[in-house]
């Protein structure tokens, strides 16, 4: 199997799906001539032409809404936000239009659209550019929210997202674009809504997504060095949550640490904690711990930002707390 980067895996997914279905188009800032701000769309303009790969003005509300309108008419747009931090100026279009037109019309429309782009903190880009918005969009009833952590999932899940007949927020993490992994060639889909056990263990379950999965894996190494066996569950999809996989792991380990980069209040980890205590209360041997981004706007200075981000050390400490 080829070892490629996350950005190459995403590029393959886009290219293969555009090849397969003439209704798939890609639009966003700098996706065409510039080849993508993060090079995810590299070469696609040359392959598919300007009719299908469109540079937009810096008008997130305008082009996100344009994508929704095109989806109402049967196209299958992939709308790139250069970063999800910029999606906030398109919030009305994503929430009220992509999120509610099918329902408000009594089921007359399908909205097959993928909003995608980079997200996340840790690269010293300050408060406005560092958001991890999966919990905001997971609050929209119709929305599917996907946050891949590995290149094979990035490809397989993006292909599935493009083939879904419903709106998807596909939230990549900037820190992972250069991350390499084995990716199967060709038409391999990853099922949306299934978590992945990316490290087996027996004493504590670390539940994470996206870049936080790598923080959890680093913590699991630290814990192993101390003789503690941690299982790492990568959610892959935030909505719908794979509750059966989560519960199976909790039943096995009886202890849980949730690791999420977003802010704590009403973060997705709060929902996961609710589901676990509600469905597996008797399996728990300790209160569930959460390691999140700290509840402050993202600071610039490196030392401050590192303090705000979930770290392997904080996860390890939380895991040890569950073990008493």
């Amino acid at each position: 199997m080829a070892v490629i980067t996350m950005r190459e895996a995403l590029n393959q997914a886009l290219s293969e799906e555009m090849e397969r279905d003439g209704r798939v188009i890609l639009m966003g800032e700098e996706v065409a001539e510039y080849q993508g701000a993060y090079k995810v769309s590299s070469g696609l303009l040359q392959k598919f032409g300007a009719k299908r790969v469109l540079d937009t003005p810096i008008s997130e509300s305008g082009f996100a809404g344009l994508g929704v309108g095109a989806a109402m008419q049967g196209l299958r747009p992939v709308v790139e936000f250069m970063t999800w931090s910029f999606s906030m100026v398109a919030y009305d279009q994503i929430v009220n239009n992509a999120g509610a037109i099918r329902y408000m019309s009594g089921g007359q429309y399908s909205i097959p659209i993928v909003f995608r782009g980079s997200s996340g903190a840790g690269l010293q880009v300050g408060a406005t550019h560092s958001h991890t918005p999966e919990n905001w969009y997971a609050n929209v009833p119709a929305m599917t929210v996907i946050t891949p952590a590995f290149p094979d999932d990035a490809k397989g899940l993006l292909k599935s997202a493009i083939r879904s007949n419903n709106p998807v927020c596909f939230i990549e993490n900037e820190k992972l674009y250069g991350f390499k992994g084995e990716v199967p060639e060709g038409d391999v889909l990853t099922t949306i809504g299934q978590a992945r056990i990316c490290r087996e263990g027996s004493q504590v379950t670390l539940i994470a997504n996206s870049a936080s999965t790598h923080v959890a894996l680093a913590s699991a190494e630290q814990l192993a060095a101390d003789g503690i066996s941690a299982e790492v569950v990568d959610l892959r999809t935030i909505k719908p949550l794979d509750i059966p996989t989560i519960l199976a792991s909790v039943v096995k380990t009886s202890r849980v640490v949730i690791v999420e980069e977003n802010k704590p209040f009403a973060g997705w980890g709060a929902q996961v904690a609710y589901e676990i205590q509600h469905r597996a209360f008797d399996s728990l041997d300790a209160p569930i711990e959460r390691v999140t981004g700290l509840d402050v706007p993202q600071p610039y200075a490196r030392v401050l930002e590192q303090a705000v981000m979930p770290s392997a050390e904080r996860v390890t400490e939380a895991a040890k707390k569950t073990l008493g």
Binding site: S61, G62, G69, A70, M72, N96, M104, S105
Partner: peptide
Amino acid sequence: FSKEKHFHGGHGIVGGQTPLAAGIAFA
């Protein structure tokens, strides 16, 4: 809404339908 009559709403947020119209025309 009536998709059958090509009447695509009925939108509640002031101005929110204007990008949708551009998208319908794009398609």
